[in-house]
Design a protein around this nucleic acid. Structure first.
Length: 573
RNA sequence: CGGGGCGUGGCGCAGCUUGGUUAGCGCGCCUGCUUUGGGAGCAGGAGGUCCCGGGUUCGAAUCCCGGCGCCCCGACCA
């Protein structure tokens, strides 16, 4: 590509609002422009990086047995009503009407269409297993896009769906996709950590997320350095503390004026927070009230609470709603709530004796509350949020937390989509069974953004060879340089080497700084001076400021191929 | 959705508190001359509904009201 034909100019200063280094450099380097909140145009350089990433994904998906197809972005709302997600998913699902006033949605993922295709195409166990994938736009009307491409509303995703006869088949594909994903990220040179994750609105039984560790990440990961335990904080567990073995004592009402927090309560009664219980009030989107109870020294993990009551999402209850179930904020407990709310008690609380809890009366608490005697629960489960330093559930070493960006995920979906959308097949034994599905996604733009975050220096971007927009950036300086550059361009291109030629006639300094900013792995300079010394100045982008060597034009192709083996070797070729 | 911030030529910003001549600066852009290996110099020039709508006023970028857009924190989330 000739730089003189490029649409988009490099910027000396990043537009205000670009916060992360990667986002700033993608804007400055003329890769990216923002059109609206969470909506971006990809300029020619970015498109080339995306093509490289997508090619890697295609190769690895094909190697995993996948076949590529393409499913629509705009879909009938009816389909989503059948799966139940039309009502389950909130405003992130963009809904609109077509000209005949029929409900439509922009897909934020493609389980429904896949199941619908499976229903019509798969009749026999002989047609299973299958793995389909696509690289497709998605739209998710996110309440808060951020950090450039890290979180957008419109985004391209490589999504794949597995279809199997049974759980065993799903397990096999799930493991195969895990390996494929590790291969994709490795080839993109993005370090990722696979962590166990919550299944969320996707439904299903098991999920894993691929995390690029970075402070700009929005997920908190719980890690154990000694045994390798790694889970998203949404599902992570710590080892449970010892619960003292006590005999239940008699319930006692005590005056505790002005103690609406655990801190003030423990101070007033001179007891540790671990001898108290506290309560959170949440409501589900279908109107159920939920009371969660954890020990006073612990925090509620909302994801766990939502999962306990099979709710897609929770919102805090209003003061009126709390009063309606007989509770008093600050002096609350599940005692007396009865069936006015779903009570979920953390397992540690359920095992503990004689905790101090609210009396549901302004200014009063109760000593010696005991689960089972004084109140009951609809569910007993782990509700606690893991904190840094707590002992690992596996090996009891202190846990560490870290931020991460989720660049990919894999889900075992099970049969829920097949059941709701009628995707059944006739098994070998003559019985009709639902197809067992898995779902596997990688955000293409987010992956590009993470690679940019992970690969830059003071000079600008510095792409891994496998995904760089061009293998070579050639600066043509002066009349002699331009003439030689045309020759070099023909020579490299005829050998299958893609290059960006800076033929703008800018001053050398401008060309050099732009070359470093754009970040192609190999930098060539041709000029009157270099020609006089015998050819072309050549050096790698990394490390910044490396000494260049002079190469004869006829040696360039061999040099490039030797420097970038990963770019010219693709899987299976 | 709650809290905070911002909106002035392509980009970055000043001006607004205390209303008052032609709305400024840096970068970029155009023309000419000089220069030509690390973001050139000189000279000349183009380019602005000061986010939008209302209001106050003799007069609004500036004050008031309403709206829109974007960013950050939180809630939420592939």
């Amino acid at each position: 590509m000739r730089m003189s034909r490029q649409l988009g100019v490099t910027l000396r200063q990043a537009p205000a609002g670009a916060e992360t280094p990667g986002h700033q450099l993608l804007l400055r380097g003329a890769y990216l422009r923002q059109l609206g909140q969470g909506i971006f145009s990809y300029l020619p350089y970015a498109v080339r990086v995306i093509r490289r990433i997508e090619q890697i994904m295609r190769e690895e998906m094909e190697a995993a047995g996948g076949v590529e197809l393409s499913m629509p972005l705009a879909q009938p709302g009816e389909l989503w009503k059948r799966s139940g997600r039309y009502d389950k998913i909130g405003p992130e699902l963009l809904r609109f009407s077509d000209r005949r006033d029929r409900p439509m949605v922009l897909a934020l993922t493609h389980e429904e269409v896949t199941a619908s295709l499976a229903a019509s195409e798969v009749q026999s166990w002989r047609q299973l297993p299958r793995l389909v994938y696509q690289i497709q736009l998605k739209f998710r009307d996110d309440p808060r896009p951020r950090a450039g491409l890290i979180r957008t509303r419109e985004f391209t995703m490589k999504d794949a769906y597995s279809l199997d006869r049974d759980e065993r088949g799903l397990d096999l594909q799930y493991d195969r996709l895990h390996q494929a994903y590790l291969a994709i990220f490795a080839r993109c040179e993005l370090p990722v950590l696979a962590v166990e994750a919550d299944v969320g609105v996707m439904g299903g039984s098991e999920a894993r997320e691929y995390m690029y560790l970075s402070p700009i990440g929005e997920d908190t990961l719980v890690l154990c350095d000694s045994c390798g335990y790694a889970q998203n904080r949404q599902v992570a567990r710590a080892a449970r503390p010892e619960v003292p073995d006590e005999k239940p004592e008699a319930l006692e009402r005590v005056s505790t004026p002005g103690t609406t927090t655990i801190e003030s309560l423990t101070g007033h009664l001179a007891i540790p927070a671990s001898k108290t219980a506290k309560v959170v009030f949440e409501a589900t989107s279908d109107g159920r009230f939920v009371v969660g109870v954890v020990r006073g020294d612990m925090q509620v993990n909302e994801t766990k609470l939502a999962n306990a009551v099979s709710a897609a999402e929770l919102r805090p209850m209003t003061a009126d709603e709390i009063a309606a179930i007989g509770c008093v904020p600050g002096y609350a407990s599940p005692i007396g709530v009865g069936n006015r709310a779903t009570v979920v008690v953390d397992e540690i609380v359920a095992e503990s004796h004689n905790l101090v809890a609210g009396a549901n009366e302004e200014g009063f608490h109760l000593r010696n509350t005991n689960f089972g005697r004084d109140y009951d629960a609809d569910f007993i489960t782990d509700l606690t949020a893991v904190e840094e330093g707590q002992p690992c559930v596996v090996c009891r070493s202190p846990l560490r937390t870290e931020r991460g960006v989720e660049v990919g995920n894999i889900f075992k979906l099970g049969t829920s989509y097949a059941d709701t959308l009628g995707a059944y097949f006739l098994d070998e034994d003559g019985t009709e069974k639902p197809i067992v599905m898995g779902s596997y996604g990688i955000g293409v733009g987010r992956l590009l953004a993470c690679i940019a975050e992970a690969n830059h220096d003071e000079g600008g971007l510095s792409w891994p060879a496998a995904v760089a927009p061009f293998a070579v950036h050639l600066c043509a300086i002066g009349e002699e340089g331009l003439e030689a550059a045309a020759r070099i361009e023909r020579r490299l291109q005829s050998s299958g080497i893609d290059l960006l030629v800076d033929d703008r006639g800018e001053r050398p300094g401008v060309q050099f700084t732009d070359a470093e900013l754009i970040g192609c792995p190999l930098l060539l300079t041709v000029s009157k001076r270099s020609l006089a010394s015998g050819g072309v100045e050549a050096k790698a982008r990394k490390p910044l400021g490396a000494e260049a060597q002079i190469l004869a034009e006829e040696d360039l192709v061999a040099w490039v191929r030797a420097k970038l083996p990963e770019r010219f070797a693709s899987r299976g070729t």
